[in-house]
Structures are given as C-alpha cells and as structure tokens.
Design a protein around this nucleic acid. Structure first.
Length: 571
RNA sequence: GGGCCUGUAGCUCAAUUGGUUAGAGCAGAGCGCUCAUAACGCUUUGGUUGGGGGUUCGAGUCCCUCCGGGCCUACCA
C-alpha cells in the first residue's frame, strides 16, 4: 500500500467556477483520488479556497460585504457545489485559515533568514478615490500605440502591445473610473528566485515523464531572457497574511500582506494541518504527509492544475520550500491541463456564457457532467464543450451502453428467475473468454489510471461496459432459457456479478451511479477485482438483488435546444 | 515581437516516439436479435494525416517553408 498525497489547484474565491475550471484541476484530482482509494492506497486529497488578493477584495466590495464575510460565504457556496459534484476531498480548507497564516509567516521568516528575501522599493500607481494601489491591469486608458481607449496597464488587448501603466494616455482606475491617480513609492519583499535558479533547473531535469506542457512552461521561465526573475511576494492590501509579524527578519512592512500566489500553495500544507485539527489529531498526523524527516519520505505527491498555474507550481512554490532549508515534501508529478472552451469560444463569467457549476447541477446529476468532462479532458490540447457532443456522448455511453445493460440483465432475471441470483448451470468456454477479455481491458484501464491518462482511461472503461453487452448478445439467455434454463441461469448469474464489478471500476468516474448499481446488487463489497474470475463469483446463487431505477435518463432534443439557448450568454 | 502547443474520417480523439495495409467511438449504410432506457450485437462506407518542399530503404512522426487554431510572455489569479 502506497501513500499518495493529492492536491488540486485552489479555486479562487471570487465567484462560482465554470466547467472549464472544474475539469482543469478538481475533477481529475478527484478521479485519481477515488481510484487510488479504490485500489486500497492511503490517500490524502486536499483542496481549499484561495481567498486573498485584489479580486477578492473587489468582489466583496461589489457585494457590499466585509471581505472576511464574503469569503466565508463563498467558501461555503463553493464547498456545497464541490459536494454536489462528489469531489471527495479529505479536507477542503481556506487559505485564510490561522494554520496558513502561521505557516506562511514561518516559511517567509525562514527564507529571510536564508538571505533569500530582498526589500525593494518600487513605484506603483495609487488611486486616491479607491484608496488602494492598483495592479497594472486594473488601470485603463488609451493605448499610445493604436489609440484603443480601453487598453489595460499591462497590455493593450486591441494591438497586443505590452504596456507600462504610465504609458497610457488618460489613465483611469478600472475599478471606479477615477482619474485621480498618482505614482507612489512602496516597499515590498521579493523572493530571490534567481538565486535558486540552478537548483530549480536541476530539480525539474530530475523529474521523469512530466507532461510537456508542464516542463516547457517551467523551462521557459527558467531560461527566458536573463533567466528566472525575482518576484514580489507582498502587496499593499488589507486582506491576507500580514507581512509584518513577531519574529519577522525585516521591519517596515506594516499594513502589507503576502502576495496571494505566495500563500496559496502553502495552503496545501496548511489545509492538511486544518484536516488534522478537524479530525482531532495531533501535529504529527499532518506532518507525516509533508515532512520528509517526519514520515513523508515514502509519500508520492501529485498536483493537478490548469496550465495557467504551472509557473507557480514548478518554480515559485518549489523555491519557497527549497529556500526554507527544511525537508518539506516536494511534488513528484504535476498533471496539467489545457482549457475547455464553450461552443466555439471561451467561457465568460461577465457575459454569462457557458455552464457554471451551480447551473450544471441544477439541470443534470453530477455523474453526467463528470463522465463527459473527464472523458473529454483537455489533456493534449484545448477541448470544446458543445451540447450536441454532450448529448450524444452521455446518451450513448451512460444510458445505452451502461444503464441499459443493468436494466436488461436485472429485468430479464426478475421475469424468469425472480429477484435473486439464479442457481444452476456452469460456466463454459464463452464465460472463460469473457473473463479473459475483461481482464485484459481492466489491466489496461488500471495502467491508464496509474498514468493519469484520463481520456484513455474513460475509453477503456467504456470498452469494459461494451464487453458486457457483447457477452449477453452472444450468450442470448432469453434464447437459452427456452431450451436450457440452467444454462441461462449461469449466464445471468455471471451478468449480475458483472454489474457489481462495473460499479467498482466505474466509481471513480460516476460515483453516484456506481452506488446505485452496488445497492441494487444488494452488496457493499467494493474491493477491487484483482482477480476477475473470483470477483464474478462474489454474489452467490440465492443472493437477493433489486431492479434499479433508470440509471441515466436520456437527454432529449428539446432539453438540448433549451439549454443551448439558455447558456449562450446575454450578448 | 518571442516561446510553446496544436492541425489525422462529417464529429471527438488514437497511433508503442522513424517501421508492414493510419486505428477507435459517435454519426451514416446494411444485416441480425427481441432480454432491455426504440436499447444491444455483427458487417460496412468514409483519410493525398492543413498546403508545398526536403532528409531517409521507409515520414502522421524528423527538417525547411507557408496557412489555420490556441496558450504563455512574470503586477489577475
């Protein structure tokens, strides 16, 4: 039994996430966690809300609430949706937790003591009306290059020219439109990532089999231009982890907080500490997952994230852990994803374009979404959601191939033998062949799951379901029954057992349907079918079962048309 | 501008890293079955692998070039 630590990129607090966000980190992480638990491994699956930063403060202001209250509410909202999608976090924490405050300050102090923190005084744009410093992209104005009047301070969206906020003509605050902006000096702490460049480079080189997407982004940042740049890790904000604290190896940082990207990954660790506290366990309980000197040396740590998160997970966070000089567990494998687009364009929160997590659950059960999203996960390139594809995939795979199989087997048995596993007859060559075929497919499925090849895993799982239909067609118990009822009994006994096996192997993808199937088979034995012959003999003759309700109702053309219109966006 | 990814059947994707005749699923066509959610099974149509050039005994795979799509580019997260 292995110990596997799994973290999903933290969803940002400022609103409900869309399906693209879901499939980019939390959902595949959940798939992997569920699979590894199913195989009997010890899993720690961690997620949390990422609560700091300018957008959180602005969202709270817009909602007319104190930021702490806003975050607490959104944390609960997102948590409820996570439960709705059956995301099986061992702990769902908050980057604003006391544990994260303490750990972030601890690591920052260690970095400071190691000489890896530098104080830098820089000039930034301050908005008097908004009473805050403005990040470059929160300043708008006319592009000096092309004259576009809604250019942002970091780049003009129209002509793509890189800009400095002071380049803008008639600059204004993107928050309030205020024009009373001025350049002020402010002091910040910088993490001297450049000093760790060679160690990071060697560390990346030592990793085997990481997705190209992951390593190419890391390498780009390491070697582009003058190489890895130092990075500011503090901001002039109210809400966050205070950068000035007892024991800090610097002075004059009062009123400043750590940068959200500094404290967010640390929350992976802190959330595990939150977990320990919530479970009533001691410090050692979480440290054995994260400290190589306290038991984490045999942990395999896998991170899941969208490609936009890669630089922070391959460089900044490792730099933080390495630079601390303490034996923190570093990531072993980074699974990164491309983006999911919506019907020919991007998901858009502001335009209400695309399907968001709350809307998705309001129209269909989680398993439908889980199946489609995972079987179309954007692994090799960006993927696209269309209602037509969604309807076709879900109806065919879930309703026809899997759902109907369970239905035909249980209803046939009920009508001919009653609602018990029938006795009599014996397995022959056809059954041996089925077991052999299932074994081949299952081993392939396992290999793909181990390798986190998600689409391939889904395709192999579907092929496992198809084998059941092929067997039934070939064995034709409805025919056999007329001449040799005992043979039909053996065939149906096998088929009923197969349904239980399908429940087990399908559970990582479609946990609710899997539970329904298992319940219908009157069993609670979820042990992984290492030996399919044995697994298919688990339900003995005479064992009672029930005919499950329709497992997956089909999506009708009317529904599809309705949803297509409803989620197209306001303009 | 620079870097990276990507383009394979009508659609969604494979192809053991240069090796036989480019494979699946869906959609389409035909046949079969009648237990089942008008479900299932079998057979089958469909490709100048974005265009052009090159290297090689051999190219979807490597090189050059052109065309299209996407991402990143360090103060959004």
């Amino acid at each position: 039994m292995a110990r596997i630590l799994i973290t999903s990129a933290l969803p940002y607090i400022n609103g409900i996430k869309h399906l693209g966000n879901l499939v980019g980190s939390q959902l595949p992480a959940d798939l992997y966690a569920r699979y590894m638990r199913g195989r009997g491994h010890e899993v720690m699956f961690i997620c949390a809300t990422d609560e700091h930063g300018t957008p959180a403060e602005l969202a709270a202001a817009k909602a007319g609430k104190p930021v702490a209250d806003y975050c607490a509410e959104m944390h609960d909202t997102q948590g409820e949706l996570a439960r709705g999608f059956r995301l099986s976090f061992d702990h769902y924490g908050r980057s604003s937790s006391p544990q994260n405050h303490a750990l972030t300050q601890h690591l920052a102090a260690r970095l400071g003591q190691a000489g890896l923190i530098e104080e830098v005084t820089e000039k930034q744009v301050y908005s008097i009306t908004d009473a805050r410093f403005l990040p470059d992209r929160y300043i708008e104005g006319t592009c000096p290059n092309c004259g576009y009047d809604r250019a942002r301070g970091d780049q003009c969206e129209n002509c793509t020219k890189q800009l400095d906020p002071t380049d803008l003509v008639n600059p204004r605050s993107a928050i309030s439109g205020a024009t009373d902006l001025e350049v002020r000096e402010t002091k910040h702490l910088f993490l001297r990532q450049s000093a760790l460049r060679d160690r990071l480079d060697q560390w990346i080189d030592s990793q085997q089999g990481w997705p190209v997407l992951t390593t190419s982004i890391a390498k780009k940042w390491l070697h582009d231009g003058n190489g890895l740049q130092d990075r500011g890790i503090t901001r002039d904000l109210d809400w966050g982890v205070p950068a000035q604290f007892d024991g800090a190896p610097w002075q004059g940082m009062d009123g400043k907080v750590f940068y959200v990207w500094f404290d967010a990954p640390i929350e992976y660790i802190a959330a595990t500490a939150e977990w320990a506290e919530a479970q009533g366990l001691d410090e050692a309980a979480w440290r054995r997952w994260w400290r190589e000197d306290e038991g984490a040396d045999d942990v395999r740590y896998v991170q899941f994230m969208g490609k936009d998160n890669v630089p922070f997970h391959t460089l900044s966070f490792p730099a933080t852990l390495m630079g601390s000089g303490e034996p923190w567990k570093m990531v072993d494998y980074i699974k990164s994803f491309n983006y999911l687009n919506y019907d020919g364009g991007q998901f858009s929160t502001s335009l209400g374009r695309g399907v968001f997590m709350d809307q998705a659950l309001s129209i269909l059960p989680a398993d439908y979404w889980r199946w489609w999203l995972l079987s179309h996960a954007p692994e090799s390139s960006d993927a696209e959601f269309t209602w037509e594809n969604f309807q076709a995939s879900v109806n065919k795979d879930l309703a026809d191939v899997l759902g109907n199989l369970a239905s035909r087997v249980t209803k046939f048995c009920r009508s001919k033998f009653g609602e018990v596993v029938p006795e009599g007859g014996a397995y022959g060559p056809r059954e041996d062949q089925l077991i052999a075929d299932l074994t081949t497919r299952l081993r392939a499925y396992e290999a793909h799951m181990e390798a986190m090849e998600i689409r391939k895993s889904a395709s192999e799982l579907r092929a496992l379901w198809v084998l059941g239909n092929e067997y039934l067609q070939d064995a034709a118990p409805w025919s056999t029954f007329k001449t040799d009822p005992e043979a039909a009994a053996a065939q149906i006994r096998l088929a009923l057992n197969l349904i239980r096996v399908y429940a087990i192997v399908s559970r990582p993808f479609i946990p609710d349907a899997a539970a329904s199937l298992m319940q219908a088979m009157g069993s609670d034995d979820w042990s992984w079918p290492e030996d399919l012959g044995a697994a298919l003999a688990t339900l003995p003759a005479g064992h009672a079962f029930t005919v499950p309700d329709v497992l997956f109702a089909k999506i009708t053309d009317e529904q599809r048309a309705d949803w297509e219109t409803r989620f197209a966006g306001t303009r």
